[in-house]
Design a protein around this nucleic acid. Structure first.
Lengths: 220, 220
DNA sequence: AATCGTCTACCCCCAAAGAGGTATCCTGGC
DNA sequence: GCCAGGATACCTCTTTGGGGGTAGACGATT
């Protein structure tokens, strides 16, 4: 918004005081950027964000009580217009995907080189999405077929394998893709689907998918 | 499969002879990798792939007649088990996403450093997904735009008729049944479904159904 | 009057899905 | 040792689904 004249305002939300201190020092060495607030928990962070409307919010994922994803959702729900960048140790696909889906404008890993941080923040402040390079492969894989993710208190009569197939159907995958994912032939997948239809007394994979979603079985 | 003993076999499918030549020379300098075939078009490429079952296929996107994405789909349809890596000049989001969706195991840009190519191919041959770093941001954005989530904007873009069809798909009806219910031909239903898939950026009626249920649009 | 969006219907073509069937292998229970 | 259930893979067959295209009818907007 105002990167030409006034310095970009940054809000830190992280429960580690030392880390906040470190970031603050890095940022304060720059003329075009300043930390205008810090919070050690989600509640304070959201209040500060609403009050100060920073250009950029650096948000930790692992926080007590209310985690980062939830905080992110609440910020977006409050229509906070700030750029929000996740800054975390977690390189788990679930976290990255959840953050991006919840509207994160960036996802940086805490093990990055300190000297890289400020340039990345500068990019983020002017609207570019910033992502740690290390996550490329992970993103590609997530994009390619989103979420298998296991466990399921699903229908008791189903075998474990059938539950696998059930979930993947509910993600919209074709038999062939399911086969590739489970490393079995698509013919075998068809056998399982056939059994699913019979056991659940349904008439097509679409009904299976709808049923799974309605029962909440499609995600762990 | 056989990266410990026999050299990894590579098939090149690209309509530029010079480029093929260049890659070939690079690859042939390595002991653990060999080019076992070349094709300048999709048809020959598919035939060669089926005959020789290479460990790795390097596939160009821009080819005459049958493009790379289509070639990729056909290769997968034929159950070619090779690792398939796209090698192209295009850094357009649509191409990257389409390639990954079609089952590409990698996506490398032709403007990469030559000395990086062989290491990347080696990675790909043993099953790792390889993506040019430059595409990170793009991938993240593609992933994010997959889920409208907070915005119900996409639903509003549907015509009344499309909303009818959407709801009936979510009830698990076939095109024929939908046609019977709405008193139109099943061919017409297919047209509406086609438009639904395009507008909602989904890939099958199953995904449409799941989306509708998740959004709570299936009743009402 | 011309254009646009929508709905309708058809064409071709090929991939995906689903209903039958047989068969092998393995594991746990009796 | 035998048997049942589960997982795998293959076969054939028909129906369904989806992408591409063209095109006519209608109503609204320009």
């Amino acid at each position: 918004m105002s990167e030409t004249d006034a310095p970009a305002s940054v809000l830190l939300i992280d429960d580690h005081p030392l880390l906040r201190q470190g970031i603050k020092q890095l940022v304060e060495m720059e003329e075009d950027m300043e930390v205008i607030g810090e919070a050690s928990n989600a509640h304070d962070g959201i209040t500060l964000a609403l009050d100060s409307e920073p250009d950029l919010i650096l948000l930790d994922l692992n926080m007590p009580e209310i985690n980062g994803i939830e905080t992110l959702k609440r910020l977006r729900a409050e229509n906070v217009g700030s750029r929000i960048v996740i800054f975390t140790v977690s390189d788990h696909e679930d976290d990255v995907v959840a953050a991006l889906r919840a509207g994160a404008d960036g996802y940086l890993l805490k093990d990055m080189e300190p000297e890289d941080l400020v340039p990345q923040l500068r990019q983020a402040a002017v609207g570019r999405m910033v992502i740690s390079d290390r996550l490329t492969t992970l993103l590609a894989e997530a994009l390619r077929s989103q979420k298998p993710e296991a466990t399921g208190a699903s229908y008791d009569s189903l075998t474990p394998r059938e539950k696998d197939i059930l979930k993947l159907i509910a993600e919209g995958l074709s038999n062939k893709m399911i086969g590739r994912k489970l490393d079995i032939s698509d013919g075998t997948v068809k056998v399982h689907v056939k059994h699913l239809l019979k056991k659940l007394n349904l008439r097509s994979r679409v009904e299976v998918a709808v049923w799974a979603v309605e029962e909440g079985l499609h995600k762990g």
